[in-house]
Each structure stands twice: as structure tokens, then as C-alpha cells.
Computed example of a mutant assay.
Amino acid sequence: MPYRYLLFYKPYNVLSQFTNDSPVERLTLRDYIPVPNVYPVGRLDHDSEGLMLLTDNGQLQHRLSDPKFHHTKTYWAQVENIPTDEAIAQLRKGVTIQNYRTRPAIVDRLDEPDLPPRDPPIRFRQNIPTAWLQITLTEGKNRQVRRMTAAVGFPTLRLIRVAIAKLQLSDLSPGEWRDLTDEELRSLKHLF
């Protein structure tokens, strides 16, 4: 039986697992994806949005999840205030978060992307501007992007993962999923 590979646009406030073990009522992957025996490759926090890959191929899951393989994950982060050149340079070199030095990252300013509105919307302060950054990592520590931007003085207000390796979020809306195309599958073949 062939493996399944799914892309999913995880909405805000949805757990990136199929069960809810917490006392707080939250939606899970089960509320969106009716495909049995697939599991997420990595996680997104409940308050983050964006691209998830799900599969029943354990070897691929391991290759994409293990930081020693240095696979990229790209995020769009809306941050509070306008990041300075110095802050961006720090993010690019790596910052210390929770006694851990992050690997260097690719960080660029980003024009405000055309995204569906978040429900609920981010907090808005009339006298504090926001800006968008595109951040590409080769690791995935717990809440890493949020901790990195906070460490340089620009807390993340909204976070969307837009790419995993060569897979892109582009044609999905929040809550939608689909099987990988043949071309997307070929782009992953070198991993297993």
C-alpha cells in the first residue's frame, strides 16, 4: 500500500495533534483531516498558523524532523515595532534563547503579505507599528521564532509557517488539506 503525504494549512488555535489532552477545549487535526494513520512531521504551536506535512512514512517523518539533517522551514513573523538593522543582524548570526545558541538563520524584511485574517485578530495598538519578517531556520526548537524575535526586542504577534523544505503553503486556505502533487513528492524523494 503506498504511503500518504498531505499538506495542511493549520489555522490559529488548533492543536497540531489528533487528540486534545489539555483541559482547554481546542480543535485538533481530527477536526480537519479524515485520513487515518497519518501523523504530523513536526509541530506548530496552537497559536501559530501555516503549513504542516502529514504522512504515514516514518522514515520521511524522521528525516524531516531531526535537526541533524538541516532541512529548512520558512516562517512569516509579524513583529511588534520596526526591527532595526542590528536586530536583524543578530537574528541572522543566531541568538541565545534559554541557554541555547540558535543556528544562523536567513532573515529578511517582508512587505505585508496578503493573508487571510486571523480569528481572533492580533492585538492592535494605535501608537505601536508592526512589521513582517521572513525567517528561514534549519532547526525547530520549541517556540523558537517567538523566542528569537523577543530576544532582540521585537516580540512576535503572528506567526505563519509558509514552507517546509521545498513544499509551499501557497494554494491552501486555513483549514484546507490536500495530497502532495507528483512534483512535490519528487522534491522529497532524495530524503528517503
Rank of each mutant, 00 (worst) to 15 (best):
V35I: 15
L64K: 05
V24Y: 13
A77S: 14
E112Q: 14
L64H: 03
E184N: 07
F154H: 14
G42I: 01
R43D: 11
Y3W: 14
P120Q: 09
R103Q: 04
D31F: 03
Q90E: 13
H62E: 07
L60K: 00
L51I: 05
L60V: 02
L29K: 03
D119H: 14
P34R: 02
D45A: 13
N57S: 08
P129M: 03
L169Q: 01
R63G: 01
H71N: 03
R186M: 13
Y5Q: 07
P174C: 05
G50D: 06
A150W: 12
D56C: 00
P121Q: 12
Q61M: 01
F69C: 02
G175C: 05
A131H: 15
T181D: 10
S65I: 02
H71I: 04
P117E: 09
S22E: 12
V41W: 06
L157T: 05
P174Y: 03
Q59N: 06
L172K: 04
T74H: 08
T156I: 14
P120T: 11
A89Q: 12
L188R: 03
V41C: 05
E183C: 04
M1T: 15
N20G: 06
M52K: 10
S173T: 02
L133Y: 09
P120S: 08
K189V: 11
I106S: 13
N13T: 03
A87N: 12
D179I: 06
R161D: 09
V41S: 02
P155I: 15
N57F: 08
E49M: 10
P11W: 04
M52T: 05
D182Y: 05
P120Y: 12
L167Y: 04
N127R: 15
D45T: 11
Q168K: 12
W76P: 00
R178G: 07
D66W: 00
E80V: 11
P34T: 03
T102E: 09
I106L: 15
T181K: 09
L6M: 02
D45F: 12
V79D: 12
I33H: 00
L133C: 09
E183R: 08
R146D: 13
R63E: 01
K166C: 09
I33C: 05
M1I: 15
L133A: 11
V38C: 08
K141E: 13
F69Y: 02
E80R: 15
R147V: 11
R26F: 09
